[in-house]
């Protein structure tokens, strides 16, 4: 960095640009930013991988291949496979209604869609405990039909859907608003049906934004902790997702096993960030909003 600054200074005109900082201040600011990020972001990430392999690769492999860990991985994948498509369909429908039409109360609708972002994950779980618990109206009725929601997979899926609800919609709404509806109008005037316009015009237009929203939604769905923890009941091998499994191992002082499972989630985060960066550079899929 220092060498770069010097070369810049050498190439710069004799009179310093009045609309920028002196090289020293510039260097100091870059240093502050990088040190801050190194301490708060990089170090925790590095420590995850370091702790996971502290007891060697065999212990690592054993921790992620024991039956309870495998059950947790399977459940996490299952929950994401159900929750993400649900919110994908919702996101497309909501973005279509909001971006292609002008109607009263639109701003309020967008605020409602953002609602789950401002609800604590624990409360997102609690609402389903209240709705389906033994003291509720619905819980005992469903129980009498043998349907279990709480402390079972359906509850975990519901809580995950609640928490990841806005992700796809949030990415698509600004994108589709910016694109307008000219392309669809052209397709319709050329004789396309509504569905044809959607599949052959809209979907190709929004595919990168869609992928981007799905990536973020999936990362959150697989990593959600608070909401799932409240509704899951923590039954090992049955209702434990990967983040919950990490917690149980950690609380049992099985730290290196906890970190071993955590590396899988950290790997997912890195893949998500990598794909996201590629999408942004290639297709300018927009920045990650401010609201995740």
């Amino acid at each position: 960095m220092a060498t770069l600054d010097h070369s810049n200074a050498a190439a710069a005109p004799r009179f310093r640009d009045a609309a920028t900082e002196p090289p020293g201040a510039k260097f100091a600011l870059i240093l502050i930013a990088i040190l801050f990020l190194a301490f708060f972001l990089a170090l925790p990430l590095v420590s995850v991988f370091f702790e996971a392999f502290r007891k060697g690769p065999e212990a690592f492999w054993e921790a992620i291949s024991e039956p309870d860990a495998l059950a947790a991985i399977r459940l996490t994948l299952l929950v994401a496979v159900i929750a993400v498509p649900l919110n994908l369909v919702f996101g497309v429908a909501a973005a279509w209604a909001i971006a292609k039409f002008e109607f009263k109360g639109k701003a309020f609708l967008i605020t409602l869609i953002d609602l789950p972002f401002s609800v604590s994950p624990v409360i997102s779980g609690l609402v389903f405990v209240v709705l389906f618990g033994t003291h509720s109206v619905l819980g005992p009725i469903l129980n009498s039909y043998g349907i279990e929601i709480l402390f079972a997979v359906p509850g975990i899926v519901l809580a995950t859907v609640f928490v990841t609800f806005p992700f796809v919609a949030r990415e698509l709404i600004p994108l589709m608003q910016e694109q307008g509806s000219g392309d669809e109008e052209a397709a319709l005037s050329l004789g396309a049906s509504g569905w044809q316009a959607f599949w052959y015009v809209t979907v190709p237009n929004i595919r990168w934004g869609l992928l981007y929203g799905v990536l973020l939604c999936n990362a959150r769905a697989m990593g959600e902790f608070g909401a799932v923890s409240v509704v899951s009941g923590h039954i090992r091998g049955v209702t434990n997702t990967m983040p919950l499994h990490v917690e149980i191992l950690y609380n049992e002082y099985n730290v290196s096993a906890a970190f071993a499972v955590a590396t899988l989630l950290a790997g997912l985060a890195l893949v998500t960030l990598g794909l996201k960066t590629v999408l942004e550079l290639r297709f300018g899929a927009g920045n990650a909003g401010g609201r995740h």
Partner: peptide, 8 residues
Amino acid sequence: PFALPTAV
């Protein structure tokens, strides 16, 4: 921090 699960 958006992508890394909070428990991790």
